[in-house]
Design a protein around this nucleic acid. Structure first.
Length: 867
DNA sequence: AACGTCACG
DNA sequence: ACGTACGTGACGTTA
């Protein structure tokens, strides 16, 4: 089947312009849109390998849409000149590539594309429309693919009709109706007021079209919605018309005009060099062998065959510096190596791994390199590399240094640890974000960065933390990500229905109680209803208006019956959107959820989990806790095992403070909150009531966070004075804790940072601020960082030990999750007793403290049961 | 993109 | 006389 590639010129240029930093040539000509556009074109051409190709552009002239609707695209800012000047260059590049350009007075690029795509589609060709604009989705059909750029221009998502129906539950045709209802701000298409994305999709999915919605207006629930639809009937229909891409643009079109033909290679190279887009040179589509003719100052060796790869691997002696690019936009399972950039022996190499033919041989060569322990590897962000390599059955050895992690240990407060940023921060060299990987390798920045970071790590005495904790941990995290958490999709579907019904029901009651329909999810609209219409007392304000958070609602609960319903609504919509809908989106092809565990995010040394976050799955309330029933073992016979440290933070505090009283309590396995209650309230252990215990628990929490009497009083609903008394009593009974916390603050003021048990450092500039509030914050940070951070140190050690032991014993059970003070494992039934003991032992003995560590183990057939 | 909110330890 | 717990990430709304 013949393939047609269609480029939405304007849209792609815009996308590239805003996604990339403002690159210029040395003469100051802007090139970022040109660069991004060209890069994208090369990529699509290679991926799709089309037989026909063209690009469509908008014309300055007004379109029929402007004529029909004077406000069309009103309010849209003028194109910045930095972008405008790049359009001629983009068109020049297209012409060098022999790609035909269509632009027609009175029509937008979309319309031209729609017209031609339709024609080609009708004659049985496979069409690919590449654009940055979601509006084009209406063009999708069985053989018209709409490829939308994501995250700049390098990643794309391809939509067929089928894919659309799956994701949006409407047909491409109906997508227009949706837009007609909800409008479009950027085009200034009005739509129907009060109808947002959600409502629009819902209505169209149910009724099929705007016209049919209007015909069935009586059946639609929601008074306000009905009124709006009625009142803005015509506007809706007109909006739909405006949003419709026309498919009958008068155009002289001959398929032969757009046939792909070889670019003039020399011209193209000249052009690329003229605009100083050197890195595009090695992405040039194959075009003749006259490469030597043009001089460039490239100084790396390109490796694109097994012969070259072999001699490269053979030549490496001791140490190599690596950065890399992965390919694959889908979820977790499909990522593979695209390019590897290696600096070794003073030479730079670009290994175009994904382009090398004969996979068996190249894999073997790669394996030889990565599995050789004598060849040391310095990598920026090694975890992902370890992951893809292990999928290729390569077990990396000699991974000695990760520049990202080292920089994180040196200062955990940075916003990001990208390679160019580190080069800038530590070497004072400026590197463009674009193609920074190869630039950093070929200029030997990577090796200089290594030397610099390494000596700083040594200065700070963080070698142990880096080499024995964080580096080995990379492998554990990689394995956890690969393992994933198996889920029961049916259960999730079941919960979806259940919660959906409950939401609808609650929503109706709230509308009735308020005698009005509004968006309950909007704090602004809710505030208006509660504090203006219902005239409830204003408890708290935010910068932008009334506060309506749970704490406030709690206080209003007895003032009006709707409050209780709103609290319930909040709870349930949270569960529904974040945990039911959210998790459904991220189930991988293998039926599992693969979260990412980030090692360089938190200031204290904890891990974080994203995409999805599996560290905040509900547990406190039964309704949310149900979500945990979705998480199941890999196989029917396997078992979910959860092992959690009991009171690890308070134990860490007891250890660091050396407080005998507290250490003793733990040594005798006394319930620590009961013990604290007995101390603070001066009653025998046996007489501690549950109220006293819960108050003591709050005090303990407060201590860990860096306490203030005010917050404690808020938390416990007691007076500030009482709170102060609690704290005084506490410190009297645990005098060394008081001493320790005071000393931590003094030290932090003196040194500017706080340290954990394993010498993890957190800088606390706040502590020497002149602003009292900031300073107080600094003091709390100084108290909390060593506690939270040391607990993180301990569980990281435990993870490494558990992982190593499982491996050593060739167990098939694996760690699948860490939630700050607990580990979750998928355990094979026949390994159960051994693994259970192993986990408990390794966790409790992760680090020798003045106080013992206690681990509780729970197991079950779902995560829910392992409580 | 910022804000408010809320899920977890 | 101030304003206040520590650490995260995701979602929906609004500007």
């Amino acid at each position: 089947m013949k393939k047609v590639l269609i480029l939405d010129g304007n849209s792609l240029a815009f996308r590239a312009f805003y996604a990339l930093p403002l690159l210029t040539t040395s003469e100051g000509k802007y090139t970022n849109a040109l660069y991004g556009f060209t890069n994208m074109l090369f990529k699509m051409k290679e991926e799709i390998n089309p037989d026909y190709i063209f690009a469509a552009f908008d014309r300055k002239a007004l379109t029929f849409r402007h004529l029909e609707y004077k406000d069309y695209k009103a309010g849209r800012k003028k194109m910045p000149s930095e972008l405008a000047e790049q359009f001629p260059r983009i068109k020049q590049m297209l012409s060098i590539m022999n790609i035909k350009i269509y632009e027609i007075e009175g029509y937008e690029a979309d319309d031209i594309i729609g017209t031609i795509a339709d024609k080609c589609g009708a004659s049985g060709m496979e069409v690919y429309v590449v654009t940055g604009d979601r509006d084009a989705l209406q063009l999708a059909s069985d053989n018209i693919n709409v490829v939308i750029t994501k995250k700049g221009v390098s990643e794309t998502e391809s939509y067929t009709k089928e894919r659309m129906m799956e994701e949006f539950k409407v047909t491409p045709q109906q997508f227009i109706d949706v837009k007609g209802l909800m409008g479009d701000k950027s085009d200034n298409i009005p739509g129907v007021p009060g109808v947002g994305e959600k409502t629009a999709f819902k209505l169209i999915a149910e009724y099929g079209s705007i016209e049919n919605v209007l015909e069935n207006i009586d059946k639609i629930s929601g008074k306000k919605l009905k009124e709006n639809l009625e009142a803005f009937k015509e506007q809706a229909v007109h909006s739909k018309h405006l949003a419709t891409i026309v498919k009958d643009v008068p155009i002289e079109f001959n398929i032969e005009d757009i046939k792909v033909s070889e670019a003039d290679a020399k011209e193209l190279k000249k052009f690329i060099i003229q605009y100083q887009m050197k890195s595009l040179l090695n992405k040039l589509p194959e075009c003749g062998e006259d490469t030597e003719e043009i001089k460039t100052d490239i100084n790396y060796e390109k490796i694109d065959s097994n012969e070259k790869l072999k001699s490269f691997v053979d030549s490496i002696k001791d140490i190599s510096f690596i950065s890399y690019e992965l390919k694959g936009t889908e979820r977790f399972s499909t990522k593979v190596i695209d390019n590897l950039y290696v600096l070794t022996g003073g030479k730079s190499y670009v290994i175009e791994y994904s382009k090398i033919e004969n996979e068996v041989e190249s894999l073997d060569l790669l394996k030889k390199y990565f599995e050789k322990d004598e060849i040391k590897k310095v990598v920026h962000d090694c975890k992902n590399l370890i992951t893809v390599l292990s999928k290729m059955n390569i077990e990396v050895k000699g991974m000695i240094f990760d520049t990202a992690i080292s920089a994180y240990l040196l200062d955990s407060a940075k916003q990001n640890y990208s390679l160019p940023k580190l080069v800038n921060d530590y070497l004072c060299e400026d590197v463009d974000e674009v193609d920074s990987d190869i630039k950093i390798i070929e200029n030997s920045f990577m090796s200089r960065l290594y030397e610099t970071l390494k000596s700083k790590i040594e200065e700070q005495q963080m070698e142990k933390l880096l080499y024995e904790v964080e580096m080995p941990l990379c492998f554990v995290l990689s394995a956890m990500e690969s393992a994933g958490f198996n889920v029961n999709r049916n259960k999730l579907d079941e919960l979806e229905v259940k919660f959906r019904e409950e939401i609808d029901k609650t929503q109706r009651i709230i509308y009735e109680l308020c005698d009005e329909e509004f968006n309950i999810n909007s704090p602004k609209q809710l505030g208006k209803i509660l504090f203006e219409k219902l005239d409830l007392p204003i408890i708290k304000k935010t910068k932008t208006g009334y506060s309506t958070n749970a704490e406030v609602l709690e206080k209003l609960a007895d003032k009006h019956p709707v409050i209780e319903k709103i609290i319930y609504f909040r709870q349930i919509t949270k569960i529904y959107s974040t945990y039911v809908e959210g998790l459904k989106q991220v189930i991988d092809k293998d039926g599992k959820i693969h979260s990412s565990f980030n090692q360089t995010v938190t200031t204290t040394g904890r891990l974080s989990s994203t995409d999805p976050n599996l560290q905040n799955i509900p547990i406190k309330y039964e309704m949310g806790r149900e979500i945990r029933k979705v998480f199941i073992p890999n196989n029917e016979d396997d078992i979910i095992l959860s092992a959690d440290y009991s009171q690890i933070e308070l134990r860490v505090l007891a250890h660091m403070a050396g407080d005998e009283n507290m250490i003793n309590a733990f040594a005798h396995h006394t319930d620590i909150h009961t013990k604290t209650a007995s101390e603070v309230f001066n009653v025998p252990i046996e007489e501690v009531t549950s109220l006293l215990r819960s108050r003591a628990k709050a005090v303990n929490f407060g201590i860990v966070y860096g306490i203030s009497d005010f917050s404690l009083s808020q938390d416990l609903h007691i007076t500030r004075k009482e709170a102060k008394q609690y704290m005084d009593a506490y410190f009297e009974r645990y005098p060394k804790v008081k001493e320790y916390l005071d000393k931590t603050i003094v030290d932090a003021k003196k040194d500017g940072y706080a340290l954990t048990i394993l010498n993890r450092k957190r800088y606390i500039p706040e502590i020497s601020a002149s602003n009292k509030i900031v300073k107080a914050l600094g003091e709390r940070l100084a108290m909390n960082a060593p506690i939270q951070g040391s607990a993180a140190d301990i569980i990281k050690l435990a993870m490494i030990h558990v992982y190593d032991e499982l491996k050593k014993n060739k167990f098939k059970s694996e760690i699948i999750l860490q939630v700050h003070d607990e580990l979750i494992l998928n355990v094979k039934q026949n390994e159960f007793e051994q693994v259970k003991l192993l986990v408990k032992t390794e966790m409790e003995n992760a680090l020798k403290l003045h106080v013992g560590l206690d681990v509780d183990i729970n197991t079950g057939n779902t995560w829910y049961e392992a409580k």
